[in-house]
Amino acid sequence: MNVLVIDYGMGNLGSVRRAIEECGAAVQISGNPDDLNSATHVILPGVGSFADGSARLRERGWRDALHRAIDRGLPLLGICLGMQLLADIGEEGGENPGLGLIPGEVRRLVPDHPDVRIPHVGWNDVHYVSSIASEKLFMGIPDGTDFYFVHSFAFRPSDPAAHLLATTPYCGGFASVVGRGAVFGTQFHPEKSQPVGFQLLRNFLSQ
């Protein structure tokens, strides 16, 4: 197993690397899209703004390379900003194109109650809405388990029936996990969600 973690200059790659190593897999952190050819799994991490992340992925040639790799069936997991960048479009930092790997758009969370604070920071429960979630990513993880979130924007899948895998009750409920084929995205940080996060990463790596 060779897990490629995409280095596009955004965020904390060290904790993703360590978490995957804890799961018993070899990790390659790479800024070169050619390395996708030798990878068995790819992780798109990310902390930062959609505009910046989107521009960096395009500039560095990841967009086309990822589309080709996914057409070959390479499993991909986007985390936080990495999940959001799977969408068609995002509004953080102006309207910008995402990777277009899962149809949808990324919009700012809107409080549904005066006491709701944005950003959404901390531990919140994740509820499956699709059997794909429980069969592929959440094996061994009870429905409603807490994961760690830190974000102000959220993914809105265009076709929730097909691509929405789990939701989290904040701001009226948002998509905390999306998926399409072997491409998955989690709004929470599995690498910061301790034992349950590692379990989720192991499940992804068993794809």
């Binding site: 965020g11 902390v47 930062g48 703004s49 910046d52 900003l81 953080e92 930092g93 950003p119 920071v121 830190v150 974000h151 102000s152």
Partner: peptide, 8 residues
């Protein structure tokens, strides 16, 4: 905040 996101 613009570069890395408000959340951090």
């Amino acid at each position: 905040a613009e570069r890395f996101g408000s959340q951090c």
